[in-house]
């Protein structure tokens, strides 16, 4: 009985020490599994004893640079990421983060972050699906991001908002839909919304549906005159957005390759910065009759 008591005490102390939000950030294991039937506890993470939430596995089990694997369908709650990590769901089932306020995933990391197979849902209330303010690389693969609310720096499926450093963004085989601001907004800024940023952002968007948002894909470098924004959109469908399909503003360059824009409320493509085309995009039937404003610059594929 005494031994059991002291064991219980030790567990309680360990739980307290390792609770999410504690100063202890990052574990020592190369990977951890999460499950809807998992339990957040100090020894969780094996396939037979998975953790319950992304944040717990991230804070307490997985070493920086490691991987959280999804075992089955569940809601795994919002997560804040400050170092390299992968969250991988390869046919484990619908793995959601429902965020009725704030972010689903906040990335402040300087390192490689990889997100695969997730469904991020703002349910018409949350602020942003993925809010990236760090540097390094962000890969988003086979994700569905929908229903985020707000304007400008909120209401975006994916918000890329670093102040400095170099960011490589990769989004493939994903859907950003029904967000009140942009499906994908790249808008480097100081302190979230201020000018004077110096970020270098390079990105590719491939086989992405950016539909039924206010704007599908929006690149804005106006707060980032000391940096650069350059994104290649390949086979991206930016259609049926309330305002614009593709938009590049000051100090931002967008390359369009085999992409589509139709049924947008104002323009298929709005070029207020630099939009380059490989001459192979289908841009017709936008509702004001103005498929392109600001012209497109032809560039040759090589």
């Amino acid at each position: 009985m005494g031994a059991r008591k002291s064991g219980f005490l030790a567990s309680a102390v360990a739980l307290l020490w390792l609770a999410p939000g504690s100063a202890f950030a990052g574990g020592s294991q190369p990977s951890a599994w999460v499950s809807g039937s998992g339990v957040n506890a100090t020894t969780c993470g094996s396939t037979s004893s998975p953790c319950r939430t992304f944040q717990y596995a991230y804070n307490n089990v997985v070493a920086p640079g490691g991987t959280i694997y999804v075992r089955d369908a569940a809601d795994y709650s919002p997560i804040k990421i400050t170092h390299a990590i992968s969250i991988i769901n390869d046919s484990g089932g619908t793995a959601t983060i429902v965020a009725v306020s704030g972010y689903a995933i906040l990335v402040q990391a300087v390192g490689a972050v990889h997100l695969k197979g997730l469904t991020l849902d703002g349910a018409g209330e949350g602020a942003n699906g993925v809010n990236f303010t760090g540097g390094g690389s962000l890969t988003i693969e086979n994700c569905t991001i929908k229903g985020f609310a707000g304007r400008a720096f909120t209401g975006n499926g994916i918000l890329i908002n670093p102040a400095a450093g170099t960011t490589q963004l990769t989004v493939t085989d994903s859907v950003v839909s029904g967000n009140a601001s942009a499906g994908i907004l790249v808008d480097p800024s100081k302190s979230g919304a201020g000018s004077g940023a110096t970020a270098q952002v390079f990105g590719t968007l491939t086989r992405v549906d950016a539909v039924n948002n206010e704007t599908g894909v929006l690149l804005n470098g106006s707060n980032n005159s000391g940096g650069a924004v350059s994104v290649i959109a390949s086979e991206v469908n930016a259609s049926d957005n309330i305002d614009v399909g593709f938009e590049a503003d000051l100090h931002a360059t967008l390359f369009l390759s085999r992409s589509t824009a139709t049924g947008n409320g104002l323009y298929g493509v709005a070029n207020f910065g630099n939009v380059d085309t490989y001459g192979d995009n289908a841009i017709n039937g936008n509702r004001t009759g103005n498929d392109v404003i600001g012209g497109l610059t032809s560039v040759g594929s090589r």
Binding site: G93, A123, G147
Partner: peptide, 25 residues
């Protein structure tokens, strides 16, 4: 997730407009 509904029709009535029904299995 621990007490899911059985049909889409019923779940539709449980979710706020703008929300989601997720499939578990």
């Amino acid at each position: 997730t621990t007490a899911p509904c059985r049909t889409f029709e019923y779940a539709y009535g449980v979710v706020v407009p703008g929300g989601s029904i997720f499939v578990k299995d």
